[in-house]
Amino acid sequence: MSTTVELIVSAFLLMGGSFVLLGSFGLLKLPDFFTRLHAPTKATTLGLAGLLIGSMIYFFAAEQRLMVHELLITLFLLITAPVSAHMLAKTALHHQVKSLQRTQGRSLAESARERQAPSFSEDTNL
C-alpha cells in the first residue's frame, strides 16, 4: 500500500477520532441537559462518519475490493441520530429537567411540553 493512501486514511481517522473525542468532551463539560444534547448528536455522528470513510478507503486499497458496509452504517447513524435526539429532548421536557437559568424563552418549554402553540406573553423577545 502506498504512502499517499496511508496519509489519506490517517487524516480521515484522526479527524474522526478528534470529533468523537470532542463530542464526548462536550457531553462532560456543557452546563445543562439541552446544551449537552448538541455535542453527541452532531460531533459524534460526523466523527464516526470520518472513521468509517477512512476504513472504507483502507479496505479498498488493501484488498482491491469495495466494502460498502461502512456506507450502510454511516447512513443508518445519520438517520437515527436526529430521531434519538428528538426522543431524548421529548423525555427531558416531560421530566421537567432543569434548563440553564439564563436560557432564553424558558416559558416556551412549558408550552412545548403541553404540545400547544406558544403564547407570546412573558419573556419572549419577538
Partner: peptide
C-alpha cells in the same frame, strides 16, 4: 426536524399538536 437537528447548532425538541409550531433548542 431531522435536518434542523443535524445542522446549525439547533436541536428540534417538540412539534405542537396542531402541527403549526416546531420547538427548537439553540446552543
Amino acid at each position: 426536524a431531522s435536518t434542523i437537528s443535524l445542522t446549525p447548532g439547533t436541536v428540534s425538541t417538540e412539534v405542537s399538536e396542531d402541527r403549526r409550531w416546531l420547538y427548537v433548542h439553540a446552543l
